[in-house]
């Protein structure tokens, strides 16, 4: 058996009976259905204002809060599947049994990829199913903006998954890692709301902090010009500052750079630290 095949089998045996995984995934599926159901009901009762609730417009209705909390669920799932391996000393036993520390890392990388795939597929399948059920006219699967939206969602899944990965590999305890993840989320939001008042020039840099990038990539205004125009119209009417976003690929590249950085630090930590 090839090494990737072995690692996949090992991770499958570990994950399939892990209640934390199925609980996290189950809660996410529930949120997905809860998000989609009201729009679907509305569509079945003749539809409302705005684009039809069917392909390809459906994605702006599906990939919105609370589904956008998916990345946090994924980060939490990653921590719950990885960090206990240190507390239970099973990571140590896996190495004693014959894995290299690098294999442990790559095994968890497989878990990471599968989690990203699962958290990506759930809203996509739900969206397609809702579109089939919806009586509104169905078009193509997705156009440019919708594809960007989906890719943006996949990228933020990777971002928070890699945050969970990093915290699990460095903190090595589920409670501590989850606590730090949520604490970081709060602290970064505090910093980004306080610092611009002190020095406005820093705001454009703060927009590239992980949580701000997450915020950008989960806003429908970032992907759909009509939604941005509508939002800015309302903001102008209320005297609020208009929404402005960095370039799509600048945001995506920044997120992917974070993912590479977090995974790189995790790899070095796994390799260097004693078990």
């Amino acid at each position: 058996m090839s090494r990737p095949g072995t690692l996949l089998r090992i991770e499958f045996i570990k994950a399939r009976k892990r209640p934390a995984l199925w609980l996290t995934l189950g809660v996410f599926v529930f949120f997905t259905v809860v998000t989609v159901l009201p729009s679907l009901m509305r569509a079945m009762q003749g539809g409302g204002p705005g684009p039809p609730f069917a392909l390809p417009w459906i994605w702006r209705g599906v990939l919105q809060p609370p589904i956008n909390m998916g990345p946090f669920f994924l980060g939490a799932a990653m921590i719950l599947l990885f960090a206990p391996e240190f507390g239970w000393k099973t990571a140590r036993q896996n190495v004693i049994d014959g894995l290299a520390k690098e294999h442990l890392f790559f095994g968890k990388l497989i878990t990471f990829a599968l989690l990203v795939a699962a958290f990506f597929v759930v809203p996509i399948v739900t969206g397609v199913a809702a579109s089939i059920i919806s009586p509104e006219p169905t078009g193509t699967f997705a156009r440019g903006p919708e594809l960007n939206h989906m890719f943006g969602y996949a990228v933020v899944l990777c971002l928070w998954g890699s945050v969970g990965f990093l915290l699990a590999a460095t903190i090595r305890a589920s409670g501590g890692a989850l606590g730090i993840m949520f604490l970081y989320f709060l602290v970064e939001n505090m910093v980004t709301s306080i610092v611009p008042a002190w020095n406005p020039a820093l705001e454009r840099y703060l927009n590239f902090l992980p949580t701000q990038l997450f915020d950008t990539l989960t806003r429908i205004e970032f992907y759909y010009p009509d939604a941005l125009a509508l939002a800015n119209e309302q903001r102008a009417a209320m005297g609020q500052r208009l929404l402005e976003f960095p370039e799509y690929w600048a945001v995506v590249s920044a997120v992917l750079a974070y993912v590479a950085l977090f995974m790189g630090v995790s790899f070095v930590t796994m390799r260097k630290r004693d078990l």
């Binding site: 239970w88 000393k89 099973t90």
Partner: peptide, 13 residues
């Protein structure tokens, strides 16, 4: 074949 200190296994399995 080796085991160190306490037996190290997955408690839920």
């Amino acid at each position: 074949g080796a085991t160190l200190e306490t037996p190290n296994f997955y408690p839920y399995m």
